[in-house]
């Protein structure tokens, strides 16, 4: 019997897949492993020790950068999510064409090279005369947070039974009451997932931040970049690993929220 040749059965396909995963994840695994290296020399294993995490936590500059990062990511993801929610609700009632156009424009920042957005934003701030600092970073981050927050909210909204909104109106809810009591609680998992995705994309952003951050607005990724210009130290490994752990945790939560079926939520305000 002659076996049909299918691309996925070709010898070598498995090898390519294995190599791909290796290149993707081996460096990350190495980084995490070396962040627990007791040796002062980054690349020579000297036994297991969490001491570098202690060093990171004791570093005032790092703590300051962490504080900045959290302020930026917190504010930008909140503002970006609020804007996305408004956009999703507004566009739900719009015509097909308007919606396609608006959604395309919203998604574009994900595809445009980040350096372009960075330069464009910097240029705008300079022309307008906006001082570069934490505020300029927050504004820039809010902008690119929107597409990350928009899609989880939008897909949740699309799954919502329109009869529920009609039922609320029918039972004397004003449009505002309907939003607070029905729409928002039912959209909550999507809103939260969107906010978390926006949060981590803000937390990890380097290029845009590097361009629009003024003095005193150093965030963690920018600080790490500064550190490795001196050399890759175990301290950098530990700090980067922390960033990785936080990101994984947040993504997991966002994913689990996205999996929750509509009928199974407790997001509502109970009476």
């Amino acid at each position: 019997m002659k076996r049909e040749r299918a691309p996925r059965l070709m010898t070598g396909a498995g090898v390519v897949a294995a190599l791909t995963f290796a290149f993707l994840y081996l460096p990350i695994v190495t980084l995490v492993a070396l962040s627990f290296n007791a040796n002062d020399l980054t690349t020579i294993w000297g036994g297991f020790s969490p001491k570098w995490y202690g060093v990171v936590v004791a570093n005032d500059d790092i703590l300051r950068a962490t504080r900045n990062s959290l302020i930026v990511a917190g504010t930008a993801s909140l503002a970006g999510t609020a804007a996305s929610l408004a956009a999703a609700l507004g566009l739900a009632g719009a015509g097909r064409w308007e919606r396609t156009l608006a959604e395309g424009l919203l998604a574009l920042p994900l595809l445009v090279p980040e350096i372009v957005t960075a330069v464009a934003l910097l240029l705008t701030f300079v022309i307008v005369g906006f001082p570069l600092g934490l505020t300029s970073v927050i504004i820039a981050h809010t902008v690119f947070c929107i597409p990350f927050a928009y899609y989880p909210i939008r897909s949740r909204l699309a799954a919502l039974d329109p009869a529920l909104m009609e039922a609320a109106s029918d039972l004397y809810a004003s449009p505002w009451q309907r939003f607070m009591r029905i729409e928002l609680p039912l959209l909550a998992p999507g809103v939260l997932a969107g906010a978390l995705l926006a949060f981590i994309s803000s937390l990890g952003d380097f290029v845009i931040t590097y361009f629009v951050a003024g003095p005193g607005a150093t965030t963690l990724p920018v600080y790490i970049y500064g550190m490795i210009r001196v050399g890759v130290t175990p301290e950098v490994n530990a700090l980067t690993a922390i960033l990785l752990f936080v990101t994984i945790a947040v993504i997991t939560v966002a994913f689990l929220l996205g999996q929750r079926p509509e009928t199974d939520q407790n997001g509502g305000i109970e009476s």
């Binding site: 029918d170 004397y172 809810a173 109970e270």
Partner: peptide, 28 residues
Amino acid sequence: PNKRSVNTVFQSYALFPHMSVAANIAFA
């Protein structure tokens, strides 16, 4: 609709999934 003394029993029921039975009945 919210200003009409008319209530509807929807074919799909359209019960609020995030609320208890009592909260659904209390809504109006």
